[in-house]
Design a protein around this nucleic acid. Structure first.
Lengths: 143, 143
DNA sequence: GTATCTGCAAACTCTTTGCAAAAAC
DNA sequence: GTTTTTGCAAAGAGTTTGCAGATAC
């Protein structure tokens, strides 16, 4: 499951959706910033440099669509705005280290929770589809 | 660290804050619903039964204050509204099982992550203060 | 008595929606 | 050509803020 324009095109085609320049540009933003967790406003600001006529509504609709297509994943850091990154939820899990002072978000890889999911299914009768793990604290610079 | 009116009174006193009827009522709401994850609107609805004159602003300000006092903990389930529960973040951790269909939130206890925190401190130079773990999926009734 | 707190309404932020014009296929 | 998509502006949800009057201590 690669994050390329071709993959996007295919997924759009499967859904009878169209590949518009706006969608292309937004896709490029994410391929060029694979490590970041971009809010709608972040994307808007970046897109506007090359496509000043683009509207906020398009950003929101596109992020929403990409999330449904499984290309992006919506994350919520509790700061009141949604953020998006490439969605590889079923491939490997990375979690987030959120600095309470400067707000930067680092990543942390771990497979530890995969075992936990089956425990939960048995113990609680809850079928786990996804999980999110966030650590709050102070990063290298701020501690 | 008990969740009693006396504890509240003491914490308010330490901060030179006053114990008003509104704050008392909101505290009672949480002691009477220790298992729930209440939004501002939830609290507003419950408070209004006995104190119809209370305003939304007071709810928000009180929840905010209680969170600062360490009495409540704000949680974000990604549904666009903040939720609150008693904060026992440094005592024991419970995590949340969020049903994608009916929206109910169940709890799940585990200490597994405590070991992980020290790994993160060493590996990433990140000082962990708190963590939140959420599992998304389908509950008993909805699966 | 004085500083804090409340209730109200207005403002603010993030996000969604309705609609006519524009563009992809 | 037809259906989807866009841009705009207006509406919507949740939350915050300013202020004058009320209240805890």
């Amino acid at each position: 499951m690669e994050h390329t324009l071709d993959a996007l095109k295919q997924k759009l085609y499967d859904r009878e959706c169209k590949l518009t320049p706006q969608r292309k540009v937004i896709m490029e933003i994410f391929t060029q910033n694979p490590e970041k967790h971009l809010s709608a406003e972040d994307v808007y600001g970046m897109v506007k440099k090359t496509h000043p006529e683009i509207g906020f509504a398009t950003i929101y609709r596109t992020l929403d669509l990409f999330a449904e297509l499984g290309i992006l994943q919506r994350i919520d850091f509790g700061d009141g705005r949604g953020r998006y990154e490439f969605g590889e939820s079923d491939v490997h899990h990375h979690h987030h280290l959120i600095c309470l002072k400067c707000g930067t978000v680092a990543e942390f890889d771990d497979d530890l929770l995969d075992g936990l999911e089956s425990v939960i299914e048995k113990r609680n009768g809850f079928e786990v589809v996804d999980h999110q793990l966030k650590f709050y604290g102070y990063c290298n610079k701020c501690r």
